[in-house]
Amino acid sequence: MTAAPPSLLVEDLAYAYPDGHQALFGVDLRIERGERVALLGPNGAGKTTLVLHLNGILRAGRGRVTVAGLPVGKRSLQEIRRRVGVVFQDPDDQLFMPTVGEDVAFGPRNLGLPEAEVSARVAAALQQVRMADAADRPPHHLSFGQRRRVAVATVLAMQPEIVVLDEPSSNLDPAGRRELAEVLAGLPVTLLMVTHDLPYAAQLCSRSVILDGGVVVADGPTPDVLSDAGLLAAHRLELPYGFDPTRT
């Protein structure tokens, strides 16, 4: 093998919740290093279930997940969670420490890094999301958009192989939405973005994957996927009025 292993490799992943409800029926997904991919799909398609498999919160019923060559398993859990940074939808769930700085330091400290390295990473991560001056502020004093950017910083501080964002643009005002897009576009990491926001996908991701009914039903360049009106309609996805996906 000469090429680097893909950042994320999901093979034939199936999962049923303990109550018997089956959410995933054999998902295949390969994301190369440095790619930015949008994961689209209606509510209940299994997107969140898939995300929770990527860092080993849920354990595959069948199939497997590999992150940069390392299979997700019981023994690799701590390293997998370093490699896969998940940014959850509600920043109030993600930011639980008393100050922004301590929150960003939470992950690196869990890795057992020396304190000098921790502070360097906190500073660098906050810089990357343009929140460098917020380190000493309590999260509840920040605007929603700022909190979401700090949530991104909390996973960047782990220096992950891949960043997974759950609905990154939800509840943001237009300026907050644009600021986050600018930050995300500038990140030198592999990105998987779970979203309903098709223009956001078009703006940030060159490739889009549609998940529905627990399987991947489409995978291709974003303009192609978003121009296929029949495909979108079949999976309860809709472009905003007047939006032309071929012109971004």
């Binding site: 860092n55 919160i57 998940v86 959850f88 639980f96 301590e102 330091a105 939470f106 992950g107 996973v155």
Partner: peptide, 23 residues
């Protein structure tokens, strides 16, 4: 439910039951 989501977010960042503190 928020407690459960926070716990998930903590696990996702390598929480092992102890809160790491600075020096």
């Amino acid at each position: 439910e928020r407690g459960e989501r926070v716990h998930l977010a903590m696990l996702s960042r390598g929480y092992t039951g102890r809160l790491p503190t600075g020096p």
